[in-house]
């Protein structure tokens, strides 16, 4: 199959996924409660007529599919419209998106920088003291809930040592603690996957063949083994991306980071459908896009996998 039609097909599949996800969310959030009630509060004297009026203004009296169509056509014409409680959506999403992506990319990058060399080392020196130490350390890193780790780092670096800001988004120094929190947990799990993927490959026939051919160990590891274990590693990273986005929610809350996670949590609490729909749809697009990249990477790394 030619590469162009492959991409067209994948793109259509991705679009399908985004549409289904946004439909699901738009539908589910409408099951959880009435934003008109939220707007009028807990006070007395609320009449059905008042509620009806508010729903009318919010456009909630229209049929579900009409509401959904309004939302999607707005999304693709670039007009995100207004939220129920917080003004225009576009600047909100843009600001949150920047904050979250910054945090995600930095923590993922730092974690790969640490876990890749350590993981390769551990696989090459399997069962050595170094390997065992790396293993115990990484498993320890997996034993903390992210909010607990975040609070502990905050108490140490911000309260006791007073080196770093506690929370919020104010300059590069405020990025360190949340990135460290996510980074530690990511590194711990990445290390395990990389070590395991490398082990699979190091024991495989082609690496043995490469060794038998007398290639240098360095060349064996970095040209042959790493390239071949990359499939597993990249699959895992692709999978992690969605989980990372979810895990960010909690860390963002702890550090009061103004990202997509906090925005989503708040809009769920307020039943602000327009924001939540947009947040989840944008996240879905992002995740689908990353997984598309993963599929493309497969093909590039292993030509034996046919384009289908």
């Amino acid at each position: 199959m030619p590469i162009v039609s492959y991409f067209i097909k994948r793109f259509l599949q991705a679009a399908f996924v985004v549409v289904v996800v946004s439909l699901l969310v738009a539908f589910a959030i409408r099951m959880t409660g009435d934003p008109a009630m939220m707007m009028l509060g807990e006070s007395a004297n609320i009449t059905e007529a008042d509620l009806h009026n508010i729903r009318e203004q919010m456009g909630l009296n229209r049929p579900f599919l009409v509401q959904y169509w309004g939302f999607m056509s707005g999304l693709f014409s670039g007009d995100l419209g207004d939220s129920f409680f917080r003004g225009a959506i576009a600047p909100l999403i843009w600001q949150a998106m920047k904050a979250t992506m910054l945090l995600a990319i930095i923590s993922l990058g730092v974690s790969m920088l640490i876990s890749l060399p350590l993981g390769i080392y551990a696989a090459r020196h399997k069962n050595s003291w170094g390997d065992q130490c790396i293993r115990i350390l990484s498993l320890t890193g997996l034993s903390f809930p992210n909010f607990w780790l975040g609070i502990m780092l905050m108490l140490l670096f911000s309260v006791t040592l007073k080196w770093l800001p506690v929370s919020g988004f104010s300059g590069a120094s405020s990025l360190i603690l949340p990135a460290l929190t996510i980074g530690i947990i990511l590194t711990a799990s990445n290390l395990r996957i990389i070590r395991s993927a490398m082990l699979e490959v190091l024991n495989s026939q082609y690496v043995m063949v490469a060794r038998a051919k007398g290639l240098s160990e360095h060349r064996v590891i970095y040209r042959h083994a790493l390239r071949n274990s990359a499939i597993t590693i990249i699959t895992y990273l692709g999978l992690q991306f969605g989980a990372l986005m979810g895990g960010l929610v909690v860390v963002e809350l702890v550090f009061n980071w103004p990202g997509m996670g906090t925005l989503a949590i708040e809009s769920i609490a307020q039943r602000d459908y327009p924001i939540l729909q947009t947040v989840v749809t944008v996240l879905a697009m992002l995740i689908v896009f990353v997984n598309l990249l993963v599929d493309v990477a497969y093909v590039m790394l292993d030509p034996r996998i046919r384009l289908e």
């Binding site: 609070i151 309260v159 007073k162 800001p165």
Partner: peptide, 18 residues
């Protein structure tokens, strides 16, 4: 006015003098 959702974080901000 700063809006900080998590109880432990508000307390830490106060302790840190921020």
């Amino acid at each position: 006015y700063r809006f900080i959702r998590e109880d432990a974080t508000r307390l830490a901000e106060l302790q840190a003098g921020r």
